[in-house]
C-alpha cells in the first residue's frame, strides 16, 4: 500500500471506468513555482549542481550529482543501465524533488520552478519514453510544442521541417504510426518548437538502427552548431563521446568520471569499464 490513501486503487484495473492511458507520472505536477533568484559569479549556462534526491518518498537515486552544459557545447551523460542518467535529467527539469543541490540557468537559480515554468524560461526536454503525442499528427505535435508561444511560429516549423525533411512529408500522419527514428525526430522537433535556449535529450537514439542513429547524430550536431547548448544522455557511449565537448560518466547516481569527450575516450579506466575495452 502506498502512503497516500488517495492513490489507493486496490489493484483495480477496470477499463470501463478507469483510463490509465497517458496518465501523468510527474510528482509535483500541480505544485506552484517558488521564487527564482539571480546568482552572482561564474557558472555554466545550465547546471544541476550537487543534486541529491529520488522519487517521492523512495530512496535517494542521485548523490551529489553535477551535470552542466555551456552554449555551443554538446554535453553527454553516459553510464550503465539504472545509473540514474534519466533521473538526473528529470531532476534538472524539475520533474522530481531534489533534497539538496540546485539548478541554475543563465545565472538564475531555478530550483523552485515547476517543469512548465522551466519551459517558459527556455528549456526544452525530450524524455526517454512517451516523448510524442501518438494520436496526433506530426504537425499537431509540433504545434503543441509551440503551445506557449503567442507569436507566429510558422518559421520555426519550417526550420524543423528543413532539419527533418521526412517530417514534412508525413506532416498529416498520426505520429504513432511512424518508425522509431521518425518518432525521435518528431520528439526533437517538438522540443525545438519553443525555440529553447538549451535542449535536453534523453537517449534520442534509443531503439533505432545504426544508420538512422548516425543520421540523428548528424542532425543533433547541426542543431548544436547553431549555438544551442545540448545536454544528452546516450547509450552508445563511444559515438556519443566522440561528438561530445564534455562527458559525464554516472555510476549509481554519482559522478564517476568527468572530462572532455576525448579525455574520457582516452581514459583506460573508462574504456575498460564502460566502452567495452
Amino acid at each position: 500500500m502506498s502512503g497516500n490513501p488517495y492513490q489507493e486503487d486496490r489493484g483495480n484495473k477496470d477499463a470501463t471506468i478507469t483510463n490509465t492511458h497517458g496518465a501523468g507520472t510527474m510528482q509535483p505536477a500541480h505544485r506552484k513555482s517558488g521564487p527564482t533568484k539571480k546568482v552572482e559569479g561564474d557558472s555554466p549556462f545550465l547546471i544541476g549542481d550537487c543534486m541529491t534526491g529520488g522519487y517521492g518518498k523512495g530512496p535517494d537515486i542521485l548523490h551529489d550529482c553535477t551535470i552542466a552544459v555551456n552554449p555551443g557545447e554538446i554535453a553527454v551523460i553516459v553510464g550503465p543501465n539504472g545509473a540514474g542518467k534519466s533521473t538526473a535529467m528529470k531532476a534538472v527539469f524539475g520533474m522530481l524533488n531534489v533534497r539538496s543541490g540546485s539548478v541554475r540557468l543563465d545565472g538564475e537559480d531555478i530550483t523552485q520552478l515547476t517543469p512548465q515554468d522551466r519551459v517558459v524560461k527556455g528549456m526544452g526536454f525530450v524524455p526517454q519514453t512517451s516523448n510524442i503525442f501518438t494520436s496526433m499528427t506530426v504537425e499537431e505535435n509540433l504545434e503543441m510544442g509551440a503551445f506557449i508561444r503567442t507569436d507566429d511560429f510558422s518559421n520555426t516549423m519550417e526550420q524543423v521541417y528543413h532539419l527533418f525533411p521526412i517530417l514534412k512529408e508525413k506532416r498529416n500522419q498520426p505520429a504513432g504510426e511512424l518508425s522509431g527514428g521518425q518518432r525521435q525526430q518528431v520528439a526533437v522537433g517538438r522540443a525545438l518548437m519553443t525555440q529553447p535556449k538549451v535542449l535536453m535529450l534523453d537517449e534520442p537514439t534509443a531503439g533505432v538502427s545504426p544508420i538512422v542513429m548516425d543520421e540523428l547524430f548528424d542532425r543533433i550536431i547541426e542543431v548544436a552548431r547553431t549555438g544551442l547548448p545540448i545536454l544528452m544522455v546516450e547509450q552508445n557511449a563511444k559515438q556519443a563521446l566522440e561528438i561530445a565537448d564534455k562527458g559525464y560518466v554516472l555510476v549509481q547516481g554519482r559522478n564517476a568520471y568527468t572530462g572532455t569527450g576525448q579525455e574520457l575516450l582516452a581514459d583506460p579506466e573508462v574504456r575498460k569499464s564502460f566502452l567495452g575495452g
Binding site: 497517458g22 501523468g24 499537431e140 503543441m144
Partner: peptide, 15 residues
C-alpha cells in the same frame, strides 16, 4: 487531445 494522449508531455509543452 494532447493532454488526454500524454499528460506528462502536455505539461512539458506548457499546456
Amino acid at each position: 487531445r494532447a493532454y488526454s494522449d500524454n499528460e506528462d508531455l502536455a505539461l512539458l509543452s506548457g499546456i
